[in-house]
Amino acid sequence: MTSSVNSITAETPRGSIACVGVGMTLGSHLTPLARSHIQQADVVFAAVSDNVVEMWLERMHPDVRSLQPYYGEGKPRMVTYREWVEVMMTEVRAGKRVCAVFYGHPGIFAWSPHKVIEVARAEGFAARMEPGISAEDCLYADLGIDPGKFGCQHLEASQLLYYDHEIDPTGYVVLWQVGMVGNRSIARDGHGGGHRELLLERLTQDYPLDLEVTIYRCATLPIEQPRIRRLTLQELPHAEISAEETVVFPPAKPLKRNRRFIERLAALDNEQVA
């Protein structure tokens, strides 16, 4: 059984699933291939950022089923995400061509697209993911950051507290979902002052309190512009930061040359010349 959705033949109607991203901005980012997956599907599931985007999707397909109702007050997110996988797989097992639409890129900061593809393939169904323009992509463009210049580390804020990650302050550090740090369900939405105090404590192991950081939110509607704010690190615990906003740390220390490997590279070059 191949993993290619397009290899399914008419003689052997089998369910399949394609997880696609609509990008971040309505109308601007949807790829032709993602649109085609949506339009050719029997059923479309949607987990997007804005109800207007969901309505826009409904223009492309008559059977768009929102995944939003599966969230619940106080309900662990993982329960919701497992339900998403199950409801999508139910249609795949019924022989439907399923398209699951997520905002941004379906494989970035999204658990269920990866999982549903894993489950579908394990059961012998065709499954694939199509990339979309992510918040990270927009961030580079809107903030003028080239991740290749100093390096760029991406961390989910809660994970920074749960695990002993090493921050590299010589490059950019992008901290995602600061507004939701420590929040396991949707009961508390974006007001984790105490949690963020802990996050600040962790961050000050690597950064000075007066470091200027950037709070970034990309546009989801084409009538919006990116929201870019700057504040000092010490203001972070009490700043209004929504779930979709991202905190960007600039390089705070100079890059340090690795003389040992520079010398070894030079030696290799000399050997090739000789």
Binding site: A47, V48, S49, D50, N51, V52, E54, M55, Q68, Y71, P76, R77, M78, Y81, F102, Y103, F109, A110, W111, S112, E156, S158, Q159, Y162, Y163, Q177, M180, V181, G182, N183, R184, I186, T220, L221, I223, E224, Q225, A243, E244
Partner: peptide
């Protein structure tokens, strides 16, 4: 410069954006 006014035409819904677990290694 934002979509708030569109609620007058389309209604408003709170959309959950987070799609990953925030306490990795457990849930």
């Amino acid at each position: 410069g934002n979509g708030l006014a569109l609620a007058n035409e389309f209604g408003s819904r709170v959309m959950q954006l987070v799609q990953v677990n925030l306490s990795p290694g457990r849930e």
